[in-house]
């Protein structure tokens, strides 16, 4: 069996388009949960706002691509306000309940048959991504080599000798835009969390009554965190929709939200680059396990009596779950979190 291939594939994925979607979604959560302590269990719905905002604008209403982006962002803001106004004055768990319910409502609405002529119902939508890929600044036949990076007929290849990363014409564009967004947003986050504004958010996470007693309008700060984190969630939704060139309502289940949480906890909450590292590690492990096991079965290293191809998927999630539990026991701060911070009682 070809370990080199499996490893190359997993590494390709670890910095690829899907990983960027997880990274962005988790960056938004990091602002809300990691820094402010807001339990948003509906990040999938914010991503859906972005994805459906874009798709509906372009496909159903025939608006230009950039209008779709604006509408997607606006939809995420509206949703944050709608969820935040009734719940942010209440105890933290109310937001968790309301966001998880709202996310399910959004998904059910998206797959409802009533307006499936417009939304495509459970089949979802396609045909909104062409304008995005028309923006690619290089031609489909461009070919060049620079040290170990090369482009072959529009496809990107990074050759490290033992393993090689390869990306299609479109994936390369998704990655250029995605990484630019991740770095830009991480830069903005770094400035924000090290500002007095970020200090108030951390104070709210520790004890919002104390912060209120110091003359801060806690509700307004929480709302800002919810809205901005939701906007980043919508950006993750854009990238998700564009990278697959279609959207389906059932990809926006609560599982999606919980992957963002896994990524955040794996990388380290309340650290600017925690979600990025977490996303890379999570997606690398997922891919190396599923592709490695698949390859082992194909090469008869693992006989079918022990494990069949159809069982690989569930087994991988089982292993990842186990890994998550072990992580929380032995390294609860995640990859780059601060262990010391976890030693105090939160109250």
């Amino acid at each position: 069996m070809d370990w080199q291939f499996v490893f190359s594939q997993a590494l390709t994925q670890a910095i690829g388009p899907t990983m960027l979607v997880y990274a962005l979604g988790a960056i938004g959560l990091n602002l809300q949960f990691g820094y402010t302590g807001l339990l948003n269990f509906g990040q999938a719905a914010f991503a859906a706002m972005g994805a459906y905002g874009l798709a509906l604008s372009v496909v159903a209403w025939g608006l230009p691509f950039w209008w779709g982006i604006l509408i997607g962002l606006a939809a995420a803001v509206v949703m944050a306000l709608l969820l935040g106004i009734p719940t942010l004055r209440l105890r933290a768990d109310y937001l968790a309940i309301v966001t998880i319910a709202a996310a399910e409502i959004i998904r059910r609405l998206a797959r409802a048959t009533v307006w499936s002529d417009t939304t495509g119902g459970s089949d979802g939508m396609r045909g909104f991504s062409e304008p995005f890929f028309e923006l690619i600044p290089w031609d489909r036949d461009s070919t060049w080599t620079l040290l170990f990076v090369s482009m072959d007929n529009g496809r990107l290849a990074v050759d490290f000798g033992i393993f090689e990363l390869q990306y299609s014409y479109r994936d390369t564009w998704i990655m250029v835009v995605g990484w630019a967004l991740v770095l830009l947003i991480c830069g903005v986050m770094a400035l924000l969390v090290h500002s007095p504004w970020g200090r108030v958010l951390k104070g709210i996470r520790e004890d919002e009554e104390a912060v209120r007693s110091l003359g801060k309008n806690v509700f307004a700060f929480k709302m800002q965190a919810l809205v901005f984190g939701g906007i980043i969630g919508a950006v993750a939704g854009f990238l998700f929709a564009l990278s697959r060139a279609n959207i389906q309502p059932d990809t926006f289940t609560t599982d999606f939200t919980f992957y963002f949480y896994v990524v955040l906890i794996l990388g380290g909450a309340a650290r600017v680059f925690g979600p990025v590292l977490g996303a890379a590690l999570f997606w690398f492990l997922y891919n190396i396990l599923s592709q490695g096991l698949g390859e082992a079965i194909r090469a008869d290293v693992i006989p079918p009596s022990v494990l069949e191809m159809t069982q690989v998927g569930p087994l991988v999630f089982l292993l990842l779950g186990l890994g998550m539990v072990l992580l929380l026991i032995f390294r609860p701060q995640g990859l780059i979190g601060n262990r010391k911070e976890l030693l105090f009682d939160v109250r």
């Binding site: 400035l191 924000l192 200090r199 520790e206 009554e209 104390a210 801060k216």
Partner: peptide, 29 residues
């Protein structure tokens, strides 16, 4: 007592100051 436990003593103090320009989100940038 409501000390903000996972923040430094100095940050606990600084959060108390009133009318901070940098507490506006955009100014924080």
């Amino acid at each position: 007592t409501k000390a903000l436990t996972r923040m430094s003593v100095l940050d606990n103090m600084l959060i108390g100051a009133a009318d901070q320009v940098g507490e506006r989100m955009w100014a924080g940038l």
